[in-house]
Amino acid sequence: MTAQDLTIDLASTTLRQLNQALHRLAPDTNQRYWRVLNPRGGHALAAGLDAPVKVEIDGHVGYYCAGMNKLATVIVNGNAGVGVAENMMSGLVHVRGDASQAAGATAHGGMLVIDGNASARCGISMKGIDIVVKGSIGHMSAFMGQAGTLTVLGDAGEALGDSLYEARLFVRGSVASLGADCVEKEMRDEHRAELGARLEAAGLAGTVDVAEFRRYGSARQLYNFHIDNVY
């Protein structure tokens, strides 16, 4: 048996038909590479995948592309709308353009790579995902981030890591401001190793110096309610 490549043109195929075909794939499917044409900003493209296949979308996508992804690799050759890879469990989502708000929101695992910039609330409520943004991120990113890593090669907007739990944040550029209970932390060897591993996984090994990054995390002052900590 040989692997089969499939091309789906959304100019003549509905979103429902595309997603249904992808959902029916068995874990050992031979239909491992799917190319999607003419996405035209459609929403929920390749959402809910649960098989180790590769889906490459040529064009811009709307809200929630690759939402709740498991196992699959989804490549967006364009920009992505709100909530790309939201609640991803595993796999890889790669946006070659920019991403709108809430990229990687609440995601439990897998990796999200954004070649361009990501808008506000990138990694909001992240629960284990690794996010690498080659450009900059908007305000309130990693808000209530619980676990995982957010790596930013550019700058971070205001209120980075507000109400942060245990997500780890690495920023190479400037940070406009830190949110409530988010503090800069010492960058030790284990953190440089972790950052290096994330950069390598994002295909950036040898192209970025980990020494240029600063680390941010939770001060853990809000973990148990105290009246003096009310903002």
Partner: peptide, 30 residues
Amino acid sequence: IDQRSACRHPDWTGPDDLEIKILELREITD
């Protein structure tokens, strides 16, 4: 820890977004 859940959804705001969120959930569950 004292856990305080978010009071608003992280990836949608307002009824127009909610419509798209419902679409996503429907698509994921066929």
